[in-house]
């Protein structure tokens, strides 16, 4: 266990809420999460939306809202990860790529946001990062509202790439970007891992995650239900241990998609209604 970079054991997170004015209650979106990430390893965390994947990231970083109550253990490099230690490490040894593009400052030019914390040679490093992620130098002068969703993702990614990072927590870094930029981001995560960093890749994009991940942790309703080697995700998913994971795997558009929902309703397959003309025909999509 000495090589475990991050160990999360029996993590639970609750929120206290007020209702009917002054009465208090606690809801428990996360009841029992277990994840372990070793140095140089990429662990994908997948699960249904609302199952608590982002909360896991926020708990490790210590950025949960004030009304959150945490239980269980989180250890980083063999020592308990206390709130003070989280505050000291985040943004330095532990970097975070947030899920929502709302995490960017709407009133700061994106180039400047990427330069935060880069030190003396910030301008040249920022230029290099922009070039690597396919952003133009002139894009740095723009404000977040002037960029597309996919470009904002790449800016968010650039803000997280720093010297001395040992653990990367990427919360949905890839939605809404085109395949080339996606490949670059995956390559970058792989590169970080091969340099010895541990990567927690929280994602819905199971297909992309499987390209680089070593193991996959599956979360359902706030519990870890399965941790499998990435290689187990193949074919009809017979090597997967739980029914939920098998369904998740088979529901991909690349696999069966909504087959399990069909039969109940009459579902017309679109193929026979194809028209030609101005439009590309199906399959001509070459990106």
């Amino acid at each position: 266990m000495s090589d475990a970079l991050l160990q999360v054991e029996h993590l639970s997170i609750g929120f206290s809420q007020y209702f009917k004015g002054t009465k208090k209650r606690v809801i428990h979106p996360i009841s029992d999460l277990n994840v372990e990430i070793r140095e140089g390893e990429i662990v994908a965390v997948v699960g249904s939306s609302g199952s608590g994947k982002s909360l896991l990231a926020h708990a490790v970083l210590g950025i949960l809202p004030g009304n959150a109550v945490c239980g269980g253990n989180i250890a980083y490099r063999g020592e308990p990860l206390t709130e003070e230690r989280k505050a000291r490490l985040r943004g330095r040894e532990i970097s975070f790529i947030p899920q929502s593009v709302n995490y960017l400052d709407p009133l700061m030019r994106v180039g400047k946001q990427v330069r935060i914390g880069l030190g003396a040679d910030a301008p040249s490093v920022q230029q290099a990062l922009f070039q690597r992620y396919g952003l133009k130098a002139s894009d740095g002068r723009l404000f977040p509202y002037e960029l597309s969703g996919g470009m904002l993702r790449r800016v968010l990614f650039a803000t997280s790439v720093r010297e001395g990072v040992r653990l990367v927590i990427a919360d949905e870094p890839t939605p809404g970007i085109h395949p080339e930029a996606l490949a670059e981001i995956l390559k970058q995560l792989k590169q970080l891992a091969s340099e010895g960093a541990g990567v927690m890749l929280i994602t819905h994009d199971l297909m992309s995650a499987l390209e680089i991940a070593d193991r996959v942790a599956v979360i359902e309703e706030g519990r870890t239900v399965e941790i499998s080697e990435a290689a187990a995700f193949e074919g009809a998913g017979r090597q997967l241990r739980t029914e939920f994971t098998r369904r998740l795997w088979r529901a991909l558009p690349d696999n069966d998609f909504d087959l399990e929902l069909q039969g109940k309703e009459e579902v017309r397959i679109a193929a026979d209604r194809r028209k030609s003309g101005l439009l590309l025909s199906k399959g001509a999509l070459d990106f």
Binding site: V46, G47, S48, S49, S51, Q99, G149, E172, P175, G176, H204, L206, R247, L248, W249, A251, L252, P253, F257, D258, E260, L261, Q262, E265, V267
Partner: peptide, 16 residues
């Protein structure tokens, strides 16, 4: 990009 933030099962259900 209606379902990019959703897991595969939910995505399939929602599109269906």
């Amino acid at each position: 990009e209606m379902t990019t933030m959703l897991d595969a099962i939910t995505q399939a259900k929602i599109w269906n």
